[in-house]
Design a protein around this nucleic acid. Structure first.
Lengths: 331, 331
DNA sequence: TTGAAAGCGCTAACAG
DNA sequence: CTGTTAGCGCTTTCAA
């Protein structure tokens, strides 16, 4: 059965629709008696405002979408997303807004864009942005968007929350150097993502500052599988690194599997350092030495920025969060 | 900038709003000329119907929610959910409906219920239903709902898609018996969920059919941690099973860790069999012998049932899918 | 095959 | 502090 309408509540409370609306929306300009009567009527009729009607009249939906331009498979396979979405979810839960999750690596039929342009959400948070995701840019031109990580093509109207990938990579590689490693390879993230590019930049900076040559470079796609392939690639090229800086924990795991299978010991023969400090870092053996990035906090921050934006505030365009080296077993 | 309205499209095409509406909704009763003119205007103005207005006028939202009554942590931690949600997503993507994901183990402020009652969705799919989730029942009284797994309290108006948990458990235990195992323990699922209860029932049935006594029973919560605790519990009670039937792969993993740590070999000393055949079954060592349940297909089926329901069809109230024993290393 | 007209349930000026 | 009055953008009879 359909919930009661505002009209029915008004009648039951003996007031006008406007007054009920004021009560529902928390306006102060209502007399105590009216307030009480309306509250009672609402309670009694089990009234819940109709969302569509509300959106239509107010031109806002009180809904936010998290847009994940990845395959469902990868989304569920990487604990990094779990952390960041949890953070977003926490922050949004505390607000009046509702959170919607949209996973789509592509938008061939324009369903996602249509969704956004149809006025279904007031704003969006884009996690994991690739250069090729052109539909994301169109979304950003329809509603306020906050990016996780610096967007690949940065407009001066963009908002984003990033971690300091360059510094993180530099720290990681410097640690390896400090440990006496002489031939350091890297398994980089995809060149279509700024996180991948920035970590590679940091790797190069640290090496050149130490006047060292690279021990091998291969691109990965942030997955375990991708890390394994990249590691095999490096080995197949005849490189014999004594250390590997992997741009994600999942890739570090994949690399370690390959190393072990090749009869090399980790960290004795080859030290491996990851990036994320997601839950896979401590699951499995050896436990990963890795650059921790504050994914949960990053998610929270992204949500806060968007919320402030929607509230008419003026949050910082760019937020950059620090990383931290976590020493465990792999390096 | 706001998208164009139907009124503007109508004017541009030189027809009435009604005609535009007909075109948008695929009505056949439109002349070829009008159709063409409207199409062109839509294209030209980049028109997208406003969702709120549409919902309000038609009393349907073309949106479906997946409701997950679990902690975010558990949701992201168990690949079972990844599989089932992927299945749902696939089926819904192929339809006109939009999918929304709502993760909430509880609904203290009634946000979820309010969302549903506010007319934001046309139907819901509930994954993982516990006895204690009373808010789920209220949701079911507001919109059509399809349950994943037999609901804990079955009403004759309920729709659900389940796997044959009893038969699966029987098969698993019979296999263990056939392998010559004499003392078979089980790590059961939570008694608040029918999947947990049914698998325990199957375990008991198989044992009693073979006139065997239990090698120990402990409840788990379907998580790896819970499986480990349960296994420790069984061992601490002085039981020395030579086989363990775990009601989920994650619990099997937890149990194996404990067994190994206790100096027992798997499967030589203790055979372990899981349930799910989720991605953790093949990740890690030993690879799990497990009862496969068709999670992806189950998700698809649930979505199909709901879609048919919303379409005014009469889908089967109950669907039960078969399980299959997958032999690998752990048993 | 088409258009006019009447809402869907709500918010938001605007008077009072 | 409160009610009246217009819509928000769309679907859906109902006539023509």
């Amino acid at each position: 059965m359909m919930p009661a309408t505002i009209e029915e509540v008004a009648r039951a409370a003996g007031v006008s629709r406007s007054t009920v609306s004021r009560v529902v929306n928390g306006s102060t300009a209502v007399s105590p008696e009216a307030l009480e009567a309306v509250r009672e009527a609402i309670q009694h009729l089990n009234y819940v405002p109709n969302r569509a009607a509300r959106s239509l009249a107010s031109a806002r939906t009180m809904a936010i979408a998290v847009i994940v331009p990845e395959e469902t498979q990868r989304f569920f396979g990487d604990p990094f997303f779990a952390a960041i979405v949890s953070g977003i979810n926490d922050a949004v839960s505390a607000s009046e807004y509702l959170l919607t999750l949209a996973i789509a690596s592509d938008d061939p039929r324009g369903k996602m864009l249509g969704y956004v342009r149809s006025g279904s959400i007031d704003g969006a948070i884009v996690v994991s942005h690739h250069t090729s995701d052109t539909f994301v840019e169109r979304i950003a031109s329809a509603v306020p968007v906050v990016f996780g990580g610096r967007p690949t093509r940065l407009h001066d109207t963009d908002y984003f929350v990033d971690v300091d990938n360059v510094a993180g990579a530099v720290d990681a590689v410097e640690y390896l150097i400090g440990q006496g490693r002489r031939s350091i390879a890297t398994i980089a993230g995809p060149p279509t993502m700024t996180a991948g590019v920035d970590r590679l930049t940091g790797y190069r900076q640290a090496l050149s500052a130490a006047r060292m040559r690279s021990g091998g470079i291969a691109d990965g796609d942030f997955t375990e599988e991708g890390g394994a392939i990249a590691m095999r690639d490096i080995l197949a090229r005849g490189e014999r690194p004594d250390a590997v800086f992997a741009a994600s924990d999942l890739m570090a795991r994949g690399a370690i599997d390959v190393l072990l299978a090749a009869g090399l010991r980790v960290p004795e023969d080859v030290a491996v350092i990851g990036f994320d400090d997601s839950s896979v870092a401590t699951k499995g053996s050896p436990m990963l030495t890795t650059m921790r990035q504050p994914s949960f906090a990053q998610g929270e921050r992204m949500a806060q920025v968007l919320l402030e934006l929607l509230d008419g505030g003026d949050p910082p365009r760019a937020t950059v969060m620090p990383t931290q080296l976590i020493l465990r077993e792999s390096a």
